[in-house]
C-alpha cells in the first residue's frame, strides 16, 4: 500500500527541533566535503586519464603543508560538531523541575505504564501537551529500549537498575512508541502509541480512565502483604528504621558513607539489603529479590515516597 514518501519524521517535542538543526548542519558539511572529494576524483580521472601506454608521470612525494591543512581543518570542524552535539545532549539529559512522573516497566514483549494517580496502560501512553514528563523505567527481564522517534528520545531500560528519561510534547497527536533494543522473539511487536492530548482532552481522559487505587495505595497494600510493617513501623523504630520521611533525606550508612535516599537507593535497599546498611542496624532485612515484580516495587517506592510527603506536611515548620 502506498503511504507516501515521508523523508522526515514528525517533530513533536521540545528537543526535536534542536536535534534536527544539528542533523542538518552535519549533513550540510558532509555533502560539501563529499561533493569536493567526488568532484576531485572525477576531474582527475578524466583530466589525467592515461593517454599512451608508456607514459610515466612525474612523482610527487607529498606535501607537509597540505597534510597539516587537511588534518587541522577537519579536526576543527569535527570539534564544532562535537561541542554542539555534546551540549545538546547535556541540555536534553536532565529533566526540568516539576515534571510529571510516569512509571514504565518493560517486559517481553510489552510496555506497562502506571500513572501516579492510578491509571494503568499497556502499550499506550496518554500525556498532556506542553508538560514535561519524566519516565522512571525498569524491566522485568532483558534489556529493552524506550524510543519515541517523533520526540527524538530513546533510553535503554536495563535490568537491575532504574533508567530515566524525559520529554515535553509540543503537538497533540498520536506517535509511535518502539522498543529499540533487540529483546527476543516478539521484539518488533513491542510497540505502541503515545497519545499527546490537549489539556482539556487530557483531563477528560484522566477522569474517564478506570482508575482503581493510586500507585501509593497499591504500594501500601503490598507493604502490608509482604510483611514490611513487622520491622518498619510508623511510630517507633522496630527492628528496622522508620521509613516515614526517608525519601529524599540523607542516610548515614554503617560504613560511614552518606547517601541520598532516591528511587535507586530504595530499590536496592529492598532487593539487596546488605549492599548498603543503615548505620546502627545490623543487616537483618531479608532480600525481596524474586518476591516482588518491578511493577510492584515501583508501587512500594511510590508508597514510601508518599509517606515522606505526608511527613513533611505534618511536621510544623
Amino acid at each position: 500500500m502506498w503511504t507516501g514518501f515521508p523523508l522526515f519524521p514528525e517533530a513533536a517535542s521540545t528537543v526535536a527541533g534542536g536535534v534536527d538543526a544539528l542533523y542538518w548542519f552535519v549533513i550540510a558539511i558532509s555533502v560539501f566535503f563529499s561533493a569536493g572529494i567526488f568532484a576531485a576524483i572525477f576531474y582527475f580521472a578524466l583530466r589525467y586519464s592515461r593517454k599512451s601506454l608508456d607514459e610515466v608521470p612525474k612523482p610527487i612525494h607529498g606535501s607537509l603543508a597540505l597534510e597539516i591543512t587537511w588534518s587541522v581543518i577537519p579536526f576543527l570542524i569535527t570539534m564544532v560538531m562535537f561541542g554542539w552535539g555534546t551540549s545538546l545532549f547535556f541540555r536534553n539529559f536532565h529533566p526540568p523541575e516539576g515534571a510529571m512522573e510516569i512509571f514504565v516497566t518493560g517486559k517481553q514483549w510489552m510496555w506497562k505504564l502506571q500513572h501516579p494517580e492510578g491509571q494503568r496502560e499497556i502499550n499506550e501512553l496518554h500525556v498532556p501537551v506542553g508538560r514535561a514528563v519524566k519516565l522512571t523505567m525498569a524491566t522485568e527481564d532483558v534489556i529493552h529500549s524506550f524510543y519515541i522517534p517523533a520526540f527524538r528520545v530513546k533510553k535503554d531500560v536495563v535490568p537491575g537498575i532504574y533508567s530515566s528519561m524525559w520529554f515535553e510534547p509540543t503537538k497533540p497527536g498520536k506517535y509511535h512508541l518502539f522498543c529499540a533494543e533487540y529483546c527476543g522473539n516478539q521484539h518488533s511487536g513491542m510497540i505502541g502509541w503515545v497519545h499527546v492530548l490537549s489539556e482539556p482532552d487530557y483531563e477528560a481522559w484522566l477522569s474517564g480512565a478506570p482508575r482503581g487505587e493510586t500507585m501509593a495505595q497499591a504500594g501500601e497494600r503490598l507493604f502490608q502483604r509482604l510483611g514490611c510493617f513487622t520491622c518498619h513501623r510508623a511510630d517507633s523504630p522496630g527492628r528496622g528504621p522508620v521509613l516515614e520521611g526517608v525519601f529524599g533525606s540523607t542516610v548515614q550508612l554503617e560504613n560511614g558513607v552518606k547517601v541520598v535516599a532516591d528511587e535507586v537507593y530504595l530499590r536496592e535497599s529492598i532487593l539487596k539489603p546488605s549492599a548498603k546498611t543503615v548505620a546502627g542496624y545490623r543487616t537483618q532485612m531479608p532480600t525481596f529479590q524474586g518476591q516482588i515484580s518491578e511493577e510492584g516495587l515501583m508501587q512500594v517506592i511510590a508508597y514510601i515516597k508518599s509517606i515522606a510527603r505526608q511527613e513533611r506536611m505534618n511536621t510544623p515548620q
Partner: peptide, 10 residues
C-alpha cells in the same frame, strides 16, 4: 555525535 545518536541508535 551524542546529541544525534540518542535518536539514531539502534
Amino acid at each position: 555525535n551524542l546529541g544525534l545518536d540518542v535518536h539514531l541508535h539502534d
